[in-house]
Design a protein around this nucleic acid. Structure first.
Lengths: 145, 145
DNA sequence: GTCATTGTGTTGCATATACAACTCTTGTCC
DNA sequence: GGACAAGAGTTGTATATGCAACACAATGAC
């Protein structure tokens, strides 16, 4: 890695491209389960923190609260979330089972990603990610998540 | 950067988060121009390669051709693209002027990003990006773009 | 020349996301 | 206790994106 090389690509464009590519790969892996990766991620988070509020998830994931509201409605339609959403999110039995299966899939995917990409590439992403998110926190210290 | 540290975050989730954050920052910068970053990127590419086909752009950006078709229609409605889209994309006068203004904005944004993030973080992203895209090319050598 | 294949673009339908405006609840100040 | 402020959630509207199915054009095999 030679930091003196000028970078000739657009950082934002590249990030968006990588996001599309990885989302596609992960969606493919979750397709058998009838879940998108975005939904699987929410399922796993709610499994880990039952009763978490939409607003908290939205802050953590840096998703607009309206987008989160619609994700939640979709997951309700899919039968994964219980009714009273305004006092915290809770998985149904079906949702719990799906979350567990998703976690298995995710674990395999993640290990595969680490193996394929190698530790240096992953560390590179971490470095970039930490820097960008740190900058963001400095700009707005109230985004605590 | 210590590659022996285990990574405890989800690579796909993190990439999607970074994409959301950066998209938001860039969209904000382009808002005065009445353009989103996605549109600005297309404008600049078509400016650089007049007559480029939708399919070529879709391959380069790894966007589905149907998504690209809709982006193109939107840009036509905005008055930036000429009519006969099926034989290559060409900017109108308005589109050309907008593309030029977008390039100015982008240049400033990009320099600012390099300054704020620092060369190591950017190199980290490059490393990750190269590895992921290389892996993708190996999986499918016909995705030439 | 005809037919099969392949490439390009569009449309139907769905999800993921943003911003703005609204409603409700809750909490605080006086 | 009542007015005001802040936070949570929803809905309207829009863009960005994907998959599947389709139409059409170009290209080759024969």
């Amino acid at each position: 890695m030679n930091p003196t090389q000028p970078e000739n690509y657009c950082i934002a464009g590249r990030l968006r491209l990588l996001s599309r590519v990885v989302t596609g790969l992960y969606n493919e892996a979750f397709a058998d389960e009838g879940v998108t990766f975005a939904q699987a991620g929410l399922l796993m988070r709610i499994f880990a923190q039952p009763g978490i509020r939409q607003a908290a998830l939205a802050r953590t994931l840096q998703i607009e609260k309206s987008a989160m509201s619609r994700d939640v409605q979709l997951m309700q339609r899919n039968g994964w979330l219980t009714e009273n959403v305004k006092n915290g999110l809770f998985l149904t039995e079906n949702g719990t089972a799906t979350a567990k299966r998703c976690h298995k899939i995710w674990k395999a995917l993640h290990q595969n990603a680490l193996d394929q990409l190698g530790p240096e590439a992953v560390a590179g992403l971490s470095l970039f990610s930490d820097k960008l998110l740190q900058f963001q926190i400095e700009s707005n210290p109230f985004t605590t998540g």
